[in-house]
Write a protein that binds this DNA or RNA. Sequence first.
DNA 1: TCTATTACATACTTATTTGAATGTAATGTT
DNA 2: AACATTACATTCAAATAAGTATGTAATAGA
Lengths: 201, 201
Amino acid sequence: MKQELKSKETQDLIINTSFELFYEKGYNATSIPDIMKETSLSKGAFYHHFKNKHEIGTKVIEVIIRKRIKEGFINPLTNNDGNIPELLKYVFTNRIKNYSDREKALGCPANNLVGEIGYTDQDFRVILKDLFEEWRSELINTIDIGKKRGEIKQEINSSATAISLICAFEGVRGVRKVYDDDDIFDEFLESMGLFINSLTA
Amino acid sequence: MKQELKSKETQDLIINTSFELFYEKGYNATSIPDIMKETSLSKGAFYHHFKNKHEIGTKVIEVIIRKRIKEGFINPLTNNDGNIPELLKYVFTNRIKNYSDREKALGCPANNLVGEIGYTDQDFRVILKDLFEEWRSELINTIDIGKKRGEIKQEINSSATAISLICAFEGVRGVRKVYDDDDIFDEFLESMGLFINSLTA
DNA sequence: TCTATTACATACTTATTTGAATGTAATGTT
DNA sequence: AACATTACATTCAAATAAGTATGTAATAGA
Protein backbone atom coordinates (compact mmCIF):
# COMPACT_ATOMS: atom_id res chain seq x y z
CA MET A 1 0.00 0.00 0.00
CA LYS A 2 1.18 3.49 -0.81
CA GLN A 3 2.54 5.35 2.18
CA GLU A 4 0.45 8.41 1.59
CA LEU A 5 -2.70 6.36 1.50
CA LYS A 6 -1.76 4.42 4.59
CA SER A 7 -1.03 7.65 6.42
CA LYS A 8 -4.38 9.10 5.48
CA GLU A 9 -6.13 5.95 6.63
CA THR A 10 -4.41 6.02 10.01
CA GLN A 11 -5.27 9.66 10.47
CA ASP A 12 -8.88 8.97 9.63
CA LEU A 13 -8.94 6.10 12.08
CA ILE A 14 -7.59 8.31 14.85
CA ILE A 15 -10.02 11.10 14.00
CA ASN A 16 -13.02 8.80 13.89
CA THR A 17 -12.05 7.05 17.08
CA SER A 18 -11.51 10.38 18.78
CA PHE A 19 -14.92 11.56 17.70
CA GLU A 20 -16.61 8.47 19.10
CA LEU A 21 -14.84 8.77 22.44
CA PHE A 22 -15.34 12.52 22.72
CA TYR A 23 -19.00 11.99 21.92
CA GLU A 24 -19.40 9.26 24.49
CA LYS A 25 -17.24 10.46 27.37
CA GLY A 26 -16.64 14.10 26.60
CA TYR A 27 -13.49 15.86 25.45
CA ASN A 28 -11.72 16.31 28.76
CA ALA A 29 -12.55 12.86 30.05
CA THR A 30 -11.00 11.27 26.98
CA SER A 31 -7.23 10.86 27.08
CA ILE A 32 -4.90 10.20 24.20
CA PRO A 33 -4.02 6.78 25.65
CA ASP A 34 -7.79 6.10 25.66
CA ILE A 35 -8.01 6.95 22.00
CA MET A 36 -4.96 4.97 20.96
CA LYS A 37 -5.98 1.95 22.98
CA GLU A 38 -9.17 1.95 20.96
CA THR A 39 -7.33 2.18 17.66
CA SER A 40 -4.84 -0.54 18.74
CA LEU A 41 -2.08 1.81 17.72
CA SER A 42 0.56 3.38 19.91
CA LYS A 43 0.95 6.82 21.38
CA GLY A 44 3.85 7.38 19.04
CA ALA A 45 1.47 7.02 16.14
CA PHE A 46 -0.71 9.73 17.57
CA TYR A 47 2.06 12.25 18.00
CA HIS A 48 3.45 11.38 14.62
CA HIS A 49 0.22 12.42 12.93
CA PHE A 50 -1.02 15.14 15.26
CA LYS A 51 0.63 17.92 17.21
CA ASN A 52 -1.40 17.60 20.38
CA LYS A 53 -4.86 17.00 21.78
CA HIS A 54 -6.07 20.41 20.75
CA GLU A 55 -5.33 19.67 17.13
CA ILE A 56 -7.31 16.48 17.19
CA GLY A 57 -10.20 18.30 18.86
CA THR A 58 -10.14 20.83 16.06
CA LYS A 59 -10.03 18.12 13.40
CA VAL A 60 -12.93 16.24 14.95
CA ILE A 61 -15.08 19.35 14.83
CA GLU A 62 -13.98 20.48 11.40
CA VAL A 63 -14.22 17.10 9.76
CA ILE A 64 -16.64 14.77 11.54
CA ILE A 65 -19.06 17.08 13.28
CA ARG A 66 -19.16 19.43 10.33
CA LYS A 67 -19.97 16.53 8.02
CA ARG A 68 -22.78 15.37 10.29
CA ILE A 69 -24.39 18.79 10.30
CA LYS A 70 -23.92 19.24 6.58
CA GLU A 71 -25.43 15.92 5.68
CA GLY A 72 -28.11 15.90 8.34
CA PHE A 73 -29.35 19.48 8.29
CA ILE A 74 -27.91 21.60 5.55
CA ASN A 75 -27.97 19.43 2.43
CA PRO A 76 -31.60 18.31 2.93
CA LEU A 77 -32.62 21.97 2.88
CA THR A 78 -31.28 22.45 -0.63
CA ASN A 79 -33.84 19.98 -1.91
CA ASN A 80 -36.48 22.67 -1.87
CA ASP A 81 -38.85 22.00 -4.74
CA GLY A 82 -41.78 21.26 -2.47
CA ASN A 83 -43.58 23.38 0.10
CA ILE A 84 -41.10 25.13 2.37
CA PRO A 85 -42.90 24.85 5.72
CA GLU A 86 -43.35 21.16 5.01
CA LEU A 87 -39.69 20.88 4.13
CA LEU A 88 -38.73 22.50 7.43
CA LYS A 89 -40.97 20.15 9.35
CA TYR A 90 -39.68 17.21 7.41
CA VAL A 91 -36.01 18.01 7.89
CA PHE A 92 -36.26 18.36 11.64
CA THR A 93 -38.78 15.59 12.15
CA ASN A 94 -37.04 13.11 9.95
CA ARG A 95 -33.70 13.71 11.52
CA ILE A 96 -35.04 13.18 15.01
CA LYS A 97 -36.96 10.07 14.09
CA ASN A 98 -33.90 8.47 12.56
CA TYR A 99 -31.63 8.89 15.52
CA SER A 100 -30.23 5.68 16.95
CA ASP A 101 -30.73 4.92 20.63
CA ARG A 102 -27.12 5.83 21.14
CA GLU A 103 -27.52 9.21 19.46
CA LYS A 104 -30.61 9.89 21.50
CA ALA A 105 -28.81 9.07 24.73
CA LEU A 106 -25.68 10.98 23.85
CA GLY A 107 -27.30 14.12 22.48
CA CYS A 108 -25.78 16.43 19.89
CA PRO A 109 -21.98 16.22 19.63
CA ALA A 110 -21.67 19.89 18.74
CA ASN A 111 -23.91 20.98 21.57
CA ASN A 112 -22.08 18.78 24.04
CA LEU A 113 -18.83 20.44 23.10
CA VAL A 114 -20.38 23.85 23.48
CA GLY A 115 -21.48 22.91 26.98
CA GLU A 116 -18.16 21.45 27.97
CA ILE A 117 -15.57 23.72 26.40
CA GLY A 118 -17.45 26.43 24.52
CA TYR A 119 -16.10 29.05 26.85
CA THR A 120 -12.80 27.57 27.99
CA ASP A 121 -11.42 27.10 24.52
CA GLN A 122 -12.10 30.04 22.27
CA ASP A 123 -10.65 28.25 19.23
CA PHE A 124 -13.24 25.52 19.54
CA ARG A 125 -15.96 28.07 20.15
CA VAL A 126 -15.19 29.92 16.94
CA ILE A 127 -15.06 26.77 14.83
CA LEU A 128 -18.37 25.67 16.29
CA LYS A 129 -19.82 29.10 15.67
CA ASP A 130 -18.82 28.93 12.02
CA LEU A 131 -20.57 25.59 11.81
CA PHE A 132 -23.76 27.02 13.25
CA GLU A 133 -23.45 29.92 10.90
CA GLU A 134 -23.35 27.64 7.87
CA TRP A 135 -26.46 25.94 9.10
CA ARG A 136 -28.26 29.17 9.91
CA SER A 137 -27.34 30.67 6.60
CA GLU A 138 -28.91 27.81 4.69
CA LEU A 139 -32.00 27.97 6.89
CA ILE A 140 -32.37 31.68 6.25
CA ASN A 141 -32.06 31.04 2.55
CA THR A 142 -34.75 28.37 2.71
CA ILE A 143 -37.12 30.56 4.69
CA ASP A 144 -36.55 33.41 2.26
CA ILE A 145 -37.51 31.15 -0.61
CA GLY A 146 -40.68 30.30 1.29
CA LYS A 147 -41.46 33.97 1.67
CA LYS A 148 -40.84 34.66 -2.00
CA ARG A 149 -43.17 31.84 -2.91
CA GLY A 150 -45.82 33.14 -0.54
CA GLU A 151 -45.71 30.02 1.58
CA ILE A 152 -44.37 31.91 4.57
CA LYS A 153 -45.68 35.19 5.88
CA GLN A 154 -43.83 38.26 4.63
CA GLU A 155 -43.52 39.75 8.09
CA ILE A 156 -41.59 36.75 9.39
CA ASN A 157 -38.00 37.54 10.32
CA SER A 158 -36.00 34.87 8.51
CA SER A 159 -32.88 35.27 10.57
CA ALA A 160 -34.73 35.17 13.87
CA THR A 161 -36.74 32.18 12.78
CA ALA A 162 -33.68 30.33 11.62
CA ILE A 163 -31.81 30.84 14.84
CA SER A 164 -34.86 29.89 16.85
CA LEU A 165 -35.28 26.64 14.98
CA ILE A 166 -31.66 25.81 15.65
CA CYS A 167 -31.98 26.74 19.31
CA ALA A 168 -35.09 24.66 19.76
CA PHE A 169 -33.51 21.71 18.06
CA GLU A 170 -30.27 21.88 20.03
CA GLY A 171 -32.36 22.35 23.13
CA VAL A 172 -34.37 19.15 22.73
CA ARG A 173 -31.33 17.11 22.11
CA GLY A 174 -30.00 18.21 25.46
CA VAL A 175 -33.30 17.81 27.26
CA ARG A 176 -33.87 14.41 25.69
CA LYS A 177 -30.44 13.44 26.92
CA VAL A 178 -31.36 14.19 30.52
CA TYR A 179 -34.78 12.62 30.31
CA ASP A 180 -33.78 9.50 28.42
CA ASP A 181 -37.37 9.20 27.25
CA ASP A 182 -38.70 9.36 23.68
CA ASP A 183 -41.86 11.17 24.73
CA ILE A 184 -39.73 14.29 24.90
CA PHE A 185 -39.11 14.11 21.17
CA ASP A 186 -42.75 13.40 20.38
CA GLU A 187 -44.01 16.32 22.39
CA PHE A 188 -41.33 18.59 21.04
CA LEU A 189 -42.20 17.69 17.46
CA GLU A 190 -45.84 18.48 18.13
CA SER A 191 -44.97 21.99 19.28
CA MET A 192 -42.37 22.46 16.60
CA GLY A 193 -45.04 21.59 14.02
CA LEU A 194 -47.39 24.19 15.42
CA PHE A 195 -44.65 26.77 15.41
CA ILE A 196 -43.82 26.13 11.78
CA ASN A 197 -47.51 26.22 10.91
CA SER A 198 -47.73 29.63 12.52
CA LEU A 199 -45.21 30.87 9.97
CA THR A 200 -47.35 29.95 6.98
CA ALA A 201 -49.07 32.63 4.99
CA MET B 1 -17.89 30.51 66.87
CA LYS B 2 -19.88 27.33 67.28
CA GLN B 3 -18.31 24.38 65.56
CA GLU B 4 -21.48 23.35 63.79
CA LEU B 5 -21.94 26.79 62.32
CA LYS B 6 -18.32 27.01 61.28
CA SER B 7 -18.58 23.64 59.60
CA LYS B 8 -21.66 24.66 57.69
CA GLU B 9 -19.97 27.85 56.55
CA THR B 10 -16.93 25.99 55.30
CA GLN B 11 -19.10 23.52 53.43
CA ASP B 12 -21.04 26.34 51.82
CA LEU B 13 -17.80 28.02 50.82
CA ILE B 14 -16.58 24.84 49.18
CA ILE B 15 -19.90 24.24 47.43
CA ASN B 16 -20.13 27.79 46.13
CA THR B 17 -16.54 27.81 44.97
CA SER B 18 -17.03 24.47 43.27
CA PHE B 19 -20.07 25.77 41.44
CA GLU B 20 -18.22 28.80 40.16
CA LEU B 21 -15.31 26.72 38.90
CA PHE B 22 -17.49 24.01 37.40
CA TYR B 23 -19.50 26.71 35.67
CA GLU B 24 -16.44 28.44 34.32
CA LYS B 25 -14.14 25.55 33.42
CA GLY B 26 -16.44 22.54 33.40
CA TYR B 27 -16.68 19.67 35.84
CA ASN B 28 -13.86 17.48 34.55
CA ALA B 29 -11.46 20.32 34.00
CA THR B 30 -11.83 21.44 37.61
CA SER B 31 -9.69 19.59 40.12
CA ILE B 32 -10.09 19.48 43.87
CA PRO B 33 -6.80 21.32 44.32
CA ASP B 34 -8.22 23.99 41.99
CA ILE B 35 -11.24 24.36 44.21
CA MET B 36 -9.33 24.41 47.46
CA LYS B 37 -6.78 26.87 46.16
CA GLU B 38 -9.68 29.21 45.47
CA THR B 39 -11.09 28.79 48.97
CA SER B 40 -7.63 29.23 50.54
CA LEU B 41 -8.28 26.06 52.49
CA SER B 42 -6.42 22.78 52.28
CA LYS B 43 -7.19 19.52 50.59
CA GLY B 44 -7.63 17.97 54.00
CA ALA B 45 -10.53 20.32 54.58
CA PHE B 46 -12.20 19.10 51.41
CA TYR B 47 -11.98 15.44 52.28
CA HIS B 48 -13.06 16.14 55.81
CA HIS B 49 -16.34 17.60 54.62
CA PHE B 50 -16.95 15.61 51.45
CA LYS B 51 -16.43 12.02 50.49
CA ASN B 52 -15.14 12.65 46.96
CA LYS B 53 -15.55 14.76 43.86
CA HIS B 54 -18.76 13.04 42.90
CA GLU B 55 -20.40 14.10 46.13
CA ILE B 56 -19.52 17.73 45.60
CA GLY B 57 -20.84 17.52 42.05
CA THR B 58 -24.11 16.21 43.41
CA LYS B 59 -24.28 18.92 46.04
CA VAL B 60 -23.59 21.66 43.51
CA ILE B 61 -26.49 20.51 41.37
CA GLU B 62 -28.89 19.85 44.23
CA VAL B 63 -28.15 23.04 46.09
CA ILE B 64 -26.83 25.79 43.84
CA ILE B 65 -28.16 24.95 40.41
CA ARG B 66 -31.51 23.90 41.82
CA LYS B 67 -31.79 27.21 43.64
CA ARG B 68 -30.99 29.14 40.47
CA ILE B 69 -33.71 27.40 38.51
CA LYS B 70 -36.21 27.70 41.33
CA GLU B 71 -35.65 31.40 41.79
CA GLY B 72 -35.18 32.26 38.16
CA PHE B 73 -37.84 30.20 36.45
CA ILE B 74 -40.17 28.41 38.79
CA ASN B 75 -41.03 30.94 41.47
CA PRO B 76 -41.81 33.74 39.01
CA LEU B 77 -44.44 31.50 37.44
CA THR B 78 -46.40 31.25 40.66
CA ASN B 79 -47.09 34.96 40.47
CA ASN B 80 -49.89 34.34 37.98
CA ASP B 81 -52.57 36.95 38.63
CA GLY B 82 -52.08 38.60 35.24
CA ASN B 83 -52.44 37.31 31.71
CA ILE B 84 -50.70 33.94 31.32
CA PRO B 85 -49.19 34.36 27.85
CA GLU B 86 -47.79 37.67 28.99
CA LEU B 87 -46.44 36.03 32.11
CA LEU B 88 -44.68 33.38 30.00
CA LYS B 89 -43.18 36.01 27.78
CA TYR B 90 -42.17 38.08 30.75
CA VAL B 91 -40.52 35.23 32.64
CA PHE B 92 -38.35 34.15 29.74
CA THR B 93 -37.67 37.63 28.41
CA ASN B 94 -36.87 39.15 31.73
CA ARG B 95 -34.55 36.38 32.74
CA ILE B 96 -32.58 36.64 29.53
CA LYS B 97 -32.35 40.41 29.68
CA ASN B 98 -30.99 40.31 33.19
CA TYR B 99 -28.14 37.94 32.53
CA SER B 100 -24.71 39.30 33.29
CA ASP B 101 -22.06 39.22 30.58
CA ARG B 102 -20.48 36.33 32.39
CA GLU B 103 -23.71 34.33 32.42
CA LYS B 104 -24.23 35.04 28.76
CA ALA B 105 -20.75 33.85 27.90
CA LEU B 106 -20.89 30.80 30.13
CA GLY B 107 -24.36 29.60 29.21
CA CYS B 108 -26.67 27.59 31.44
CA PRO B 109 -24.87 25.67 34.22
CA ALA B 110 -27.40 22.84 34.11
CA ASN B 111 -27.22 22.56 30.35
CA ASN B 112 -23.44 22.61 30.39
CA LEU B 113 -23.42 19.70 32.79
CA VAL B 114 -25.87 17.80 30.63
CA GLY B 115 -23.56 18.27 27.69
CA GLU B 116 -20.45 17.29 29.56
CA ILE B 117 -21.52 14.45 31.82
CA GLY B 118 -25.22 13.84 31.21
CA TYR B 119 -24.52 10.44 29.80
CA THR B 120 -21.31 9.44 31.56
CA ASP B 121 -22.67 9.89 35.03
CA GLN B 122 -26.17 8.57 35.39
CA ASP B 123 -26.47 9.91 38.94
CA PHE B 124 -25.97 13.44 37.70
CA ARG B 125 -28.33 12.83 34.83
CA VAL B 126 -31.16 11.76 37.12
CA ILE B 127 -30.70 14.68 39.49
CA LEU B 128 -30.72 17.06 36.55
CA LYS B 129 -33.78 15.37 35.15
CA ASP B 130 -35.62 15.86 38.43
CA LEU B 131 -34.71 19.51 38.26
CA PHE B 132 -36.10 19.87 34.75
CA GLU B 133 -39.19 18.00 35.87
CA GLU B 134 -39.83 20.49 38.64
CA TRP B 135 -39.56 23.28 36.15
CA ARG B 136 -41.72 21.59 33.56
CA SER B 137 -44.35 20.72 36.11
CA GLU B 138 -44.76 24.35 37.14
CA LEU B 139 -44.88 25.42 33.50
CA ILE B 140 -47.61 22.88 32.74
CA ASN B 141 -49.54 24.14 35.71
CA THR B 142 -49.20 27.72 34.50
CA ILE B 143 -50.31 26.86 30.98
CA ASP B 144 -53.27 24.92 32.34
CA ILE B 145 -54.36 27.97 34.28
CA GLY B 146 -54.15 29.95 31.05
CA LYS B 147 -56.37 27.41 29.34
CA LYS B 148 -58.90 27.45 32.16
CA ARG B 149 -59.04 31.22 31.96
CA GLY B 150 -59.50 31.08 28.21
CA GLU B 151 -56.25 32.94 27.59
CA ILE B 152 -54.68 29.96 25.89
CA LYS B 153 -56.28 27.79 23.24
CA GLN B 154 -57.96 24.65 24.60
CA GLU B 155 -56.36 22.43 22.00
CA ILE B 156 -52.85 23.34 23.12
CA ASN B 157 -50.95 20.46 24.67
CA SER B 158 -49.66 21.89 27.93
CA SER B 159 -47.02 19.27 28.47
CA ALA B 160 -45.66 19.54 24.94
CA THR B 161 -45.67 23.31 25.12
CA ALA B 162 -43.90 23.31 28.46
CA ILE B 163 -41.14 21.03 27.31
CA SER B 164 -40.73 23.01 24.10
CA LEU B 165 -40.35 26.26 25.97
CA ILE B 166 -37.68 24.67 28.12
CA CYS B 167 -35.93 23.20 25.10
CA ALA B 168 -35.96 26.48 23.25
CA PHE B 169 -34.65 28.32 26.24
CA GLU B 170 -31.85 25.86 26.97
CA GLY B 171 -31.07 25.88 23.28
CA VAL B 172 -30.49 29.62 23.05
CA ARG B 173 -28.28 29.64 26.03
CA GLY B 174 -26.05 27.19 24.27
CA VAL B 175 -26.22 28.91 20.91
CA ARG B 176 -25.61 32.30 22.51
CA LYS B 177 -22.58 30.79 24.17
CA VAL B 178 -21.05 29.84 20.82
CA TYR B 179 -21.97 33.06 19.10
CA ASP B 180 -20.96 35.40 21.90
CA ASP B 181 -23.31 37.97 20.40
CA ASP B 182 -26.40 39.50 21.99
CA ASP B 183 -28.26 39.61 18.69
CA ILE B 184 -28.91 35.92 19.18
CA PHE B 185 -30.96 36.67 22.26
CA ASP B 186 -32.85 39.48 20.57
CA GLU B 187 -33.80 37.40 17.57
CA PHE B 188 -34.68 34.45 19.73
CA LEU B 189 -36.97 36.57 21.88
CA GLU B 190 -38.74 37.84 18.79
CA SER B 191 -39.55 34.30 17.69
CA MET B 192 -40.33 33.14 21.18
CA GLY B 193 -42.84 36.00 21.44
CA LEU B 194 -44.53 34.95 18.21
CA PHE B 195 -44.68 31.36 19.39
CA ILE B 196 -46.32 32.32 22.66
CA ASN B 197 -48.74 34.56 20.79
CA SER B 198 -49.70 31.61 18.64
CA LEU B 199 -50.90 29.86 21.79
CA THR B 200 -53.39 32.57 22.69
CA ALA B 201 -57.08 31.96 22.27
C1' DT C 1 21.58 -0.48 -4.56
C1' DC C 2 22.34 2.98 -1.36
C1' DT C 3 20.29 6.60 1.27
C1' DA C 4 16.57 9.33 3.09
C1' DT C 5 12.19 9.49 4.83
C1' DT C 6 8.00 7.85 6.66
C1' DA C 7 5.15 5.30 9.96
C1' DC C 8 5.02 3.83 13.53
C1' DA C 9 6.53 1.43 18.65
C1' DT C 10 8.79 1.83 23.07
C1' DA C 11 10.53 4.11 26.85
C1' DC C 12 10.88 8.07 29.58
C1' DT C 13 10.05 12.67 31.86
C1' DT C 14 7.33 15.82 34.18
C1' DA C 15 3.10 17.32 35.96
C1' DT C 16 -1.22 16.49 37.93
C1' DT C 17 -4.91 13.92 39.87
C1' DT C 18 -7.62 11.50 43.42
C1' DG C 19 -7.61 9.98 47.70
C1' DA C 20 -5.59 8.17 52.12
C1' DA C 21 -2.75 8.65 56.24
C1' DT C 22 -1.20 11.22 59.74
C1' DG C 23 -0.61 15.21 62.65
C1' DT C 24 -2.38 19.21 65.46
C1' DA C 25 -4.83 22.89 67.55
C1' DA C 26 -9.31 24.29 68.88
C1' DT C 27 -13.63 23.05 70.69
C1' DG C 28 -17.01 20.22 73.16
C1' DT C 29 -18.22 16.95 76.86
C1' DT C 30 -18.25 14.83 81.29
C1' DA D 1 -9.46 19.16 84.49
C1' DA D 2 -9.25 15.13 81.54
C1' DC D 3 -10.64 13.18 77.51
C1' DA D 4 -12.94 12.90 73.04
C1' DT D 5 -14.10 14.93 68.91
C1' DT D 6 -14.04 18.16 65.32
C1' DA D 7 -11.84 21.00 61.78
C1' DC D 8 -8.72 21.37 59.54
C1' DA D 9 -3.24 21.14 57.53
C1' DT D 10 0.51 18.43 55.83
C1' DT D 11 2.52 14.63 53.76
C1' DC D 12 2.40 10.71 50.97
C1' DA D 13 1.12 7.05 47.57
C1' DA D 14 -0.60 5.35 43.36
C1' DA D 15 -2.49 6.23 38.95
C1' DT D 16 -2.68 8.68 34.91
C1' DA D 17 -1.94 12.55 31.92
C1' DA D 18 0.56 15.14 28.05
C1' DG D 19 4.28 15.30 25.53
C1' DT D 20 9.29 14.05 24.19
C1' DA D 21 13.10 11.19 22.78
C1' DT D 22 14.68 7.46 20.70
C1' DG D 23 14.60 3.24 18.10
C1' DT D 24 13.22 0.38 14.00
C1' DA D 25 11.22 -1.64 10.05
C1' DA D 26 9.13 -0.56 5.79
C1' DT D 27 8.83 2.33 1.88
C1' DA D 28 10.42 5.94 -1.53
C1' DG D 29 13.70 8.13 -4.28
C1' DA D 30 18.23 8.68 -6.68
